[in-house]
């Protein structure tokens, strides 16, 4: 397995493979930092990743990473970015799926990779992207009653509304008014 050849040379097949099988869904292809990137139509995401995983020419058996991104100025506002790794060929690719519509929807790949389960929940929590067919699509990092999706670009960094604490105290967003969690009346 070692030493490894340069990244681009390891699996020249994958580009042909995608051109051959999904040429109508391929929107763009480029190199970024030694990694092949394919911008694909979101309609084909499940079939494409399934074929990439199962075919012996490619065998991307590991989902490295899945995350969302937000581009408010585009027509297809959201994007799901999937990084795949092949243990057999030691090769990595990145797939980008632009999504339009509100709420944004894309098919879940949890059936293909267990690793996608929480990663998709995270993308749902932070961007509000609905993964159709996900077994347990609910918030993972934020509380269940949280409003909004914090990594969208129109979500302010300091938060939408005042935070609530279990004891009934309210944080004030004004800087000079420091939050007081334990007031005298509460200690009684």
């Amino acid at each position: 397995m070692f030493p490894a050849p340069p990244l681009q040379q390891r699996n020249p097949i994958v580009s042909d493979f995608i051109h051959r099988n999904f040429q109508y869904h391929l929107l763009e292809e480029y190199h970024s930092n030694g990694m092949l990137v394919f911008v694909m139509n979101k309609m084909c995401n499940f079939e494409l990743i399934q074929l990439l995983r199962d075919d012996s020419e490619t065998s991307y058996d590991m989902m490295l990473d899945l995350c969302g991104a937000d581009y408010p100025s585009r027509k297809e506002r959201f994007e799901v970015i999937v990084h795949l790794h092949s243990m057999k060929y030691q090769h990595r690719i990145r797939l980008r799926f632009p999504i339009d519509g509100e709420p944004p929807e894309i098919r879940s790949i949890t059936d293909l990779y267990c690793a996608a389960n929480w990663a998709e929940r995270e993308a749902y929590d932070l961007f509000g992207i609905r993964f159709i067919g996900h077994p347990n699509l609910k918030r993972i990092l934020n509380p269940d009653d949280f409003e909004g999706h914090p990594l969208r670009k129109d979500f302010p960094v300091k938060g939408l509304k005042r935070g609530h604490f279990p004891l009934g105290h309210v944080i004030n967003n004004k800087r000079n008014d420091a939050p007081k969690f334990y007031t005298e009346s509460n200690e009684e």
Partner: peptide, 22 residues
């Protein structure tokens, strides 16, 4: 590999894989 294990926890299962080498 299905769960996306890497590092020492993947190597403990018998996969010889380390980014420092790959």
């Amino acid at each position: 590999i299905q769960y996306g294990f890497t590092g020492p926890n993947l190597r403990a299962t018998g996969v010889e894989w380390d980014i420092r080498k790959v």
